[in-house]
Design a protein around this nucleic acid. Structure first.
Lengths: 332, 332
DNA sequence: CGCTCGTGTTGAAACGATTCAATTTCGATG
DNA sequence: CATCGAAATTGAATCGTTTCAACACGAGCG
């Protein structure tokens, strides 16, 4: 169907070895021959078959990135950072969206293992460290993104979520709010769990202060709206006066519901803090106070570490932790 | 480094052909042998080498999807639809973000050609139809997403952007606004250009009505904010009283700037209509009136058409055009 | 003139799977 | 018990590239 290196060799009147050298080690070939071969290549519309190349060469130039919610701008920002860094090192990044499904996550890991990608950047959803260990033994390194390694075996680039949770709750407390609510879930997701722990720590530093947990099934706008409606319907005395959402999507959902129930004012009746500081936080109904993470930088750093490990598999794991930062706007 | 099919055959005491059959045509193999081979596979941790498989089999099960702005929720919604549909047909979707760069777009096309992906779902940024034609001749079909084919050669799944622009502008006009502004760009992007054309058509149906174009360099929140600041700073008599943004990102940027300049009220002084109806439109400072496109459905449909063409390359191109829909909220 | 060296070039082996014609096995049948 | 056919299994050929030992050819040197 399509031209192979053999056809090119024939057309140019040289051997297949020479054609291969033109593409991979041009310095070994005389200028005349290079020109001749290149003419043949474009005449035939030859395109290297990556499968054959990889089979023989044993390594690919593709890096896979897996996130569990590609619709969250926070992750697309990270991906953007990784792509830019990869372009510098000559790698290509392909993205897989695991859509908060462990099954799909494992499915993609299988796919990438079969494809022998050069490395994996992953923001894990399910319990995958065992699987990643197997991949590592197999020769495919991974770097965890936005999450630390339980096993200490993997490099990771993350943000101190406990600190972030602490900052968020402290801010609400410093505004005089004493009946707090945490909205997010599932709590098993470390990012969510850690932020809650940080918030609880902050709460324990104050007397007569409560922190109630509203667990969601996912960190989405929709789930935020659901909880927001429930909170709007609560008795005033039961209702928290300060809310901390596990991420901005949830916060925006809450905001929608609270504003729609027009007997409530944000921040007067309920102060609200989000997390991630996505672009849309600025333009929310009530511009959102949020915890900013350096998303692009996370992506770049993760890719650089992965590239190092791909080149030298004996590298010890690195652990980079960035500090989050409070961005104050109107909502709290 | 890792076990091959030969090792498995040795360990199980059968031939390589049998191992291959266990994986691809289990019905041809006796139950005992299947069990024996599977035991060997897991004992050795064997993983099929996709490069070798693809080289011999000549076809892959991977479909590539390329979008020029993965940070736009509209595109992630489309991707989501495509992924769900692909899972049904046994394909995997990998995503590439061309980041509004023609260079990167062509680079990914090269990569996917070398990888011999089974097909390409693309929302093109630059002029790529010639390149896609070459790919098609090469055996890789593509389906255009959110854009029709100039050459009529490719299937496409899109939304009638001229109609959408018409609906948006008509809505503003029906509210009595007569000095309109269109914000978006570059105008060469068909989605943007068509929406403008539709708006101009609507404007031409009214007397004494003006439509001014504010061109942006990209359809982002940032660019929207930039134009919004400029508009806020205009003399009241020059200022448009109805704005139509090429997409919701731009609209949200505009909104931010207009609200920040607190002498202006949306919609009283300026009515605003966006496009795409992304999730965040509902939770904007002023909930956004927008033009809804059936994003997930677009993704599903595109993937199904692509799958058909991948199986039968002689299929004539199909052209599916969905109709957009006005969603009225507070901003206009 | 014979020898060495360096530069280009060659062609066959190897990568790891799939495929398919050929062969073996085995149960059923006359 | 011999024979037939279906079912199971084998193993060599194949895909398109890269790699590498071997070779060809001059140029330079003693």
């Amino acid at each position: 169907m399509s031209a192979s290196i053999k056809d090119v060799a024939l057309h140019a009147g040289v051997s297949v070895g020479t054609v291969s050298n033109v593409m991979n080690h041009p310095s070994r070939v005389s200028n005349d021959t290079v020109a001749k071969v290149q003419r043949a290549i474009s005449a035939l519309g030859f395109v290297r078959n990556d499968a054959a190349r990889q089979l023989r060469a044993g390594e690919s130039k593709t890096i896979a990135m897996m996130v569990f919610d590609a619709a969250n701008p926070f992750f697309t920002d990270i991906a953007r950072g990784a792509e830019d860094a990869a372009a510098k090192d000559g790698f290509s990044v392909i993205l897989a969206n695991t859509s908060e499904s462990s099954t799909r996550e494992l499915g993609y890991l299988d796919l990438f293992e079969e494809q022998r990608v050069r490395g994996i950047l992953i923001s894990p959803y399910g319990e995958v460290e065992d699987r990643l260990q197997a991949l590592k033994k197999f020769g495919i390194p991974s770097v965890l993104v936005d999450r630390v390694s339980n096993s200490q075996v993997f490099s990771s680039v993350s943000v101190d979520d406990v600190a972030g949770g602490h900052i968020a709750a402290s801010h609400l407390l410093s505004l005089g709010r004493r009946t707090l609510g945490f909205v997010g879930g599932p709590l098993e997701i470390p990012q969510v769990g850690d932020r809650l722990v940080g918030a609880q720590q902050a709460a324990s530093e104050y007397q007569e202060c409560s922190l109630r947990v509203f667990e969601t099934t996912a960190t989405t706008v929709l789930e935020g709206r659901r909880i927001g409606e429930a909170i709007a319907a609560m008795e005033p005395k039961e209702r928290p006066n300060g809310l901390f959402a596990a991420n901005d999507l949830v916060a925006l959902g809450l905001l929608q519901a609270l504003v729609a129930a027009n007997h409530l004012n944000v921040p007067r009746d309920i102060a609200l803090v989000g997390y991630d500081d996505i672009d849309f936080a600025t333009s929310a109904i009530v511009p959102l106070t949020s915890i900013r993470q350096p998303s692009q930088l996370i992506g770049e750093t993760a890719l650089e570490i992965l590239a190092e490990e791909a080149l030298d598999p004996t590298q010890p794991p690195q652990k980079v932790v960035f500090q989050p930062e409070l961005v104050i706007r109107a909502s709290a």
